[in-house]
Every structure is written in C-alpha cells, then in structure tokens.
Amino acid sequence: MRDYRKYKVWELGHEITLMVYQLTKDFPKHEIYGIVSQMRRAAYSIPSNIAEGCGRESDAEFKRFLIISQGSANELEYFTVLAQDLGYIENQIFSDLNNKVDRVRRSLNNLINKI
C-alpha cells in the first residue's frame, strides 16, 4: 500500500484545494450551490482520488484513480475560467490558480506514464 502523503502531486492538489476554499468563500452567496460547490468538489477530488488510489492493491487501480484525478483537474480549470469571466476572480489570482492546476495536471500525467 502506498502513502499518498509522500507524493508531491498530492501535496499540490491539497494546496489547490485550500486555495479554492479560501477563494470561493468570497463568491456571491447565490453561487453557494452553483459554482462554489462545483469548484470545491473538483478541487478536493484531485487529492482525494490520489489518496484513494494509493489504498488500492494494483498499479492498474492506482492509475485509474490518477486518471480520475486528472479529469477533476481539467474540470477545475474550466471553473476557474468561468469564475474569472463572471468577475469572481481577479486576474492575478486566476493566473496563480490556473498555473497550479496546470502543474498538477502535468505531474499527474507524468506519474500515470510511469506506472
């Protein structure tokens, strides 16, 4: 069994999740069940799927959860674009978050290819 806390990609996913929670607390209240909920779910799905995959027995199962995590990162990227277009995120914060999401996607891709 793998220890998910030893993976840098998990650390980055957790960092992104904390960033998204902090960022979305200032979104309009009418978005709490809309984009706020969706962004948070996509964000925490990144590290949680890495953690779940680490608990699986085979490399194939681990890889499957990494691919799911990668899909969540893609989803989060879209929600950051939407939030910026709606005026909920400032350009610098958007850029920082988007860069981290891009890094986590590339890291996941590298890990997937190594398995």
Rank of each mutant, 00 (worst) to 15 (best):
I112H: 09
P47I: 04
K6C: 03
A60I: 12
V9C: 08
F79N: 03
T24E: 05
D59V: 10
Y4A: 09
N98H: 14
V36I: 15
S45V: 09
A42V: 06
E75V: 06
I32E: 15
T17P: 01
C54M: 09
I93Q: 14
Q92V: 14
K8C: 03
E52S: 04
N74S: 15
F94D: 04
H14M: 10
P28S: 14
D3Q: 04
N113P: 01
Y33C: 03
A51E: 07
F79C: 02
A51H: 00
H14W: 11
S37C: 10
E90C: 05
K100I: 09
R2I: 02
G87T: 05
W10A: 06
L111E: 09
R106E: 12
R41D: 05
T24F: 01
I93W: 01
R41S: 10
P28Q: 14
W10Q: 05
P28C: 14
H30I: 15
N99C: 03
I67G: 00
S58A: 07
G34D: 12
R103L: 15
D102F: 11
R56N: 04
L108T: 07
K114F: 02
I35T: 07
Y4V: 04
T80D: 05
M39C: 10
N49C: 13
Q84W: 01
N113C: 09
E11V: 02
S69P: 04
A43Q: 05
R2C: 04
Q22P: 01
I35R: 03
M19Q: 14
A73D: 08
F79Q: 08
A43W: 07
A73G: 15
R56E: 03
K29M: 13
K25W: 00
H14F: 12
N113M: 09
N74Q: 09
R41W: 08
A83V: 06
L111R: 05
A60V: 11
I67T: 08
G34L: 08
I89L: 05
P28L: 15
N98T: 09
E15A: 13
S37R: 12
I67N: 06
V36Y: 02
T24I: 03
G53L: 00
M19D: 15
Y44H: 12
V36E: 01
K6S: 08
S58L: 09
G55T: 12
N49W: 13
L108G: 06
R105C: 04
F94S: 04
L111A: 02
F27K: 10
A83N: 05
I67P: 00
R40D: 04
L97A: 10
K63M: 09
E61W: 07
L108A: 08
T17C: 00
S107F: 09
S72E: 07
K8V: 06
Q22F: 08
E75N: 05
